[in-house]
């Protein structure tokens, strides 16, 4: 996996004393074009990785915002193959991509074909929230063969032996679910997140990131004091959902991502400069694709 763009970006960011910012968008929400534009905007505004979520009819780890986005995308005619088109188009902008999907669409597509097509589209990582390590053996092997990092999840309810099992099989980074619950903004960062991150560090040298319930720069900054980075999804998806036009979605996403970036140290201080959020779309980014 030495040529994996996600692994390279992680190494460059953390190696330079930075913290990682991962953002999530639902593919095809509200349409394919807008997804391409908001993913690019997030990359330009300083996201180190963008997760592209495959809309699913029965997203049981997701709260109302991402459920509604998935429903909207599916009503708009979303097909799994759109994920590859979005990836092919945004990967040129240089931001590392991961695909987040529930397991059934992968099984239906065929795990081998799914990994092959993801890799061919330039995807670097894979997240499958309803595939615990006990069931992940085959997909893990296929992902590895195609150079994809299968990113492991741990939860506050995971006992130590489960954390060990998850991180031993996983690659890329460890996704710490900060709360018992589904995705969605919450008023405060769970006190359990810190305890979980500390437990995870005993078993792995992979970067440890925290997601679920983080929506504001202030929360991101708080989490970055003990974790290697944050994952922000629902609050970005809500902005895309509320936008009246693709331009407004891009502007709104750019503003929040820039704000989150400012709250997280980064070796490339372009992203930490105040006013970054006002840069027009398409402006050259200081960070070349690696």
């Amino acid at each position: 996996m030495d040529r994996n763009p996600l692994a390279e970006r992680i190494a460059a960011c953390l190696g330079g004393g930075g913290k990682l910012l991962v953002t999530y968008f639902t593919a095809g929400h509200p349409d394919l074009e807008t997804t391409v534009r908001v993913v690019e905007a997030a990359g330009e505004a300083g996201a180190d990785c963008v997760e592209i979520g495959v809309p699913y009819s029965d997203p049981l780890a997701d709260g109302p915002v991402i459920q509604a986005a998935a429903t909207r995308a599916l009503r708009g005619g979303f097909r799994v193959a759109w994920t590859w088109e979005i990836a092919r188009r945004v990967v040129r902008s240089g931001v590392p991509l991961a695909v987040m999907t529930y397991v059934n669409p992968v099984l239906r597509y065929g795990p081998e074909a799914f990994c092959r097509d993801a890799a061919a589209a330039g995807v670097a990582g894979l997240l499958v929230p309803d595939l615990p390590p006990e069931e992940a053996g085959e997909l893990g092997r296929l992902a590895r063969r195609h150079g994809l990092a299968l990113i492991p999840f741990v939860a506050p309810t995971s006992p130590d032996h489960r954390i060990r099992m998850a991180v031993e099989a996983g690659q890329g980074f460890v996704y710490c679910i900060s709360v018992t619950g589904v995705t969605g903004a919450r008023p405060e960062v769970s006190a359990r997140a810190r305890e979980l991150v500390e437990r995870v560090r005993r078993y792995t040298r992979l970067p440890v990131l925290v997601g679920f319930g983080i929506s504001t720069p202030q929360q991101a900054g708080e989490v970055a004091r003990f974790a290697d980075g944050v994952i922000v999804g629902s609050s970005l998806v809500a902005r895309v959902d509320a936008a009246a036009s693709p331009e407004e979605a891009v502007r709104s996403v750019r503003e929040l991502v820039a704000g989150l970036r400012q709250a997280l140290p980064h070796p490339d201080d372009t992203f930490c400069r105040p006013g970054r959020g006002d840069t027009p779309p398409g402006a050259p980014t200081a960070r070349a694709p690696r």
Binding site: L60, A61, V103, P129, D130, L131, P132, E134, E135, F153, V154, A155, P156, T157, S158, P159, R162, A166, I177, T180, G181
Partner: peptide
């Protein structure tokens, strides 16, 4: 089998 989020596994 068990295809559920990690939060439920324990």
């Amino acid at each position: 089998g068990r295809f559920v989020p990690e939060t439920l596994m324990a």
